[in-house]
Design a protein around this nucleic acid. Structure first.
Length: 552
RNA sequence: GCGCCCGUGGCGCAAUUGGAUAGCGCAUCUGAUUCCGAAUCAGAAGGUUGUGGGUUCGAUUCCCGUCGGGCGCGCCA
């Protein structure tokens, strides 16, 4: 065990057992870095938290604990009581610096932790309809979800990254019809383009590409066959583009689940779910439609499962979709939806609850709207195409790193203005480059001509500068920060971490010289520190899909 | 009308999930490069956390009311 946090906590545990014969429940024994370094390197609030359980003054508890700790924690230089019952620790410098070798050993895996304990979790996000290109509204969802997956994976969860393809509804028929119209147009023939069809350029492009590949053989084909062909071909080509754009954006999807899957074999999966609901007495018929008694599970009105015309409402195959996730062995489900779907959350949770799944099986994070802004005014359309700005255009314009950083750095629960101009600027106005520049600077130090090769040491006892202490504490916190960001699904905390680490480093850089020929021992230890900070920074940036450049 | 989300210096965001004197960036002002890249740093100024109550050792965080902004209230998807 080489983690200071863990060592303090296990010492606290021992002392509580010894002095109070108490097995402290989880969540009570926590160690934090106080805001003000004057208070100490680390701090625990456990005495105050235990005051009620032990029926004692928190200050007295703190005294008793501190007394016991002085023998059990040789890494601590001083242990003091402050305020209403804080226990403050100042650690020996060599103890703080021991994290350097931990990081050098872990390398790209530093920060990884097992807080997820191998549990299975299925994250469904993006899930845009395959009827057009991904636009910047999807970009916030895509970046956030991908970062959540990265955090969960780094925290020992068994994650399945899934995209639900809505390919069974009327919109795919419209896509097919729109493509046929453009296909006819290509050959100079007439075919009505439906008013609520898809008029965007990319639909035209697909039609032209089909025409070039297939020739005019579909002009006189059987209309039913033709529509089926154009629907399938259109969907596949749109999905290929979506996949390519997501890859460009650094987003990986492992599993594409098509809505039509649930219609296969005469709707076998949907019928099974409807039967289950019927058997549980959750449905009734009214006005020729089949209803789900969702009000009994917290909804404000009952919902239609099967419309009076015999077709299914959107929700019905989606219930089958969620059931299928659990059936594949994923007891925990996360969905990322646009905030305009918030009423749908209650509905889907009600359905799963009614089917007998635990209440917290499904967790939905709602993503608030994004407005693209330039010079203070909203930009609705791309200047180039006249359509909504696509994710691809965004990547080409501001860059993947800036786009992802901007979307991930802000909590999705709040409305966001994406400042195109700011994201584009390569200057100190732009927070992405602040963190990346710190990495580049560190790389330069290590690879500068004349910098000696770093030799690993057993102890780094010369790193006593306050800046060095702060950086050591910060990088030692990294695995804990990753675990908490994963648990709470708050990748924006990774941005804060990067920024904080960059700030500490830049400050250090300006006040201490790393490479000093007059002092080879100190130089070597500082090179060790820089190597460790670099690894941490790179790993942190990677968790939000931002690159760590060696040159800028 | 009902429901959900948000409200933190001029602007954009944090706050270790209920902890100590509420932090950071931009903008403003004053300084720092013969020295590892100035896409940098040091310092100053800027706050009754929308507002009124409540819960307790302690509230930006939890509860109730209220004001302001956004979204949603289909046999659409």
């Amino acid at each position: 065990m080489n983690d200071i946090n863990a060592r303090i906590i296990s010492a606290l545990k021992e002392v509580l057992k010894e002095k109070y014969d108490l097995d402290a429940p989880a969540g009570i024994l926590t160690v934090e870095i106080p805001k003000d370094p004057k208070m100490g390197d680390y701090s625990s609030t456990c005495a105050m938290r235990l005051a009620k359980t032990l029926h004692q003054n928190p200050k007295m508890i703190a005294e008793t604990i501190a007394e016991g700790l002085r023998e059990k924690l040789p890494d601590a230089e001083t242990i003091e009581i402050a305020g209403p019952g804080f226990i403050n620790f100042r650690m020996k410098k060599s103890a703080l610096a021991s994290v350097i070798n931990t990081i050098l050993d872990a390398g790209a895996k530093y920060g990884h932790n097992n807080s997820g304990e191998g549990k299975k979790i299925l994250v469904e996000w993006v899930s845009a309809n395959p009827t057009g290109e991904l636009h910047c509204g999807h970009a916030r969802n895509a970046a956030w979800g991908d970062s959540i997956c990265r955090l969960l994976e780094a925290s020992g969860w068994d994650v399945l990254r899934e995209y639900y393809v809505n390919d069974a509804g009327n919109q795919i028929v419209m896509l097919g019809e729109s493509l046929i119209a453009r296909y006819f147009e290509y050959f100079g023939k007439e075919y009505p383009l439906p008013p609520d069809g898809y008029h965007a350029q990319d639909v035209k492009d697909i039609a032209v590409s089909i025409a070039e590949a297939e020739g005019d053989r579909w002009l006189d084909a059987d209309p039913k066959e033709r529509l089926a062909y154009f629907m399938a071909e259109g969907k596949n080509r749109e999905l290929k583009k979506i996949d390519a754009d997501l890859k460009l954006y650094g987003v990986r999807i492992d599993s594409w689940i098509h809505e039509t899957l649930f219609y296969e074999n005469d709707k076998a999966r949907i019928k099974a779910v409807l039967k289950r609901m019927d058997d549980l007495g959750l449905t009734y018929e009214k006005d020729g439609a089949l209803w789900f008694k969702s009000t009994e599970y917290g909804d404000d009105k009952d919902r239609v499962l099967k419309k009076s015309d015999g077709t299914l409402s959107y929700m019905t195959p989606d219930i089958a979709n969620h059931v299928y996730k659990v059936e594949r062995g994923y007891p925990l489900l996360v969905d990322l939806w646009g905030a305009d779907h918030h009423s749908y959350v209650i509905r889907m949770k009600a359905a799963l609850k009614a089917l007998g799944y635990p209440a917290d099986t499904l967790q939905v994070d709602l993503i608030q709207m994004v407005r693209m802004v330039e010079d203070g005014v909203e930009v609705k359309m791309s200047k180039r195409t006249g359509n909504a700005i696509t994710i691809r255009e965004l990547c080409e314009d501001v860059g993947v790193d800036a786009a992802r950083w901007f979307f991930v750095s802000k909590d999705v629960a709040t409305h966001m203005d994406f400042d195109m101009k700011l994201a584009r600027t390569r200057s100190n106005d732009n927070p992405v480059y602040y963190a990346q520049y710190a990495y580049t600077r560190m790389f330069n130090i290590l690879h500068k001509e004349g910098t000696p090769e770093f030799r690993r040491e057993d102890s780094y006892d010369l790193l006593t500068d306050p800046h060095e202490t702060e950086m050591l504490k910060l990088i030692a916190e990294f695995p804990k920060t990753v675990a908490e960001s994963a648990k709470n699904r708050t990748p924006n905390r990774m941005c804060n971490f990067c920024q904080q680490l960059a700030r500490e480093f830049h400050s250090y850089y300006n006040s201490c010289r790393v490479s000093d020929p007059q002092n080879p021992e100190l130089t070597n230890q500082r090179l060790g520190l820089i190597s460790a900070v670099m690894i941490t920074m790179k790993n942190a940036l990677d968790l939000i899909g931002v690159s760590a450049p060696e040159k800028m």
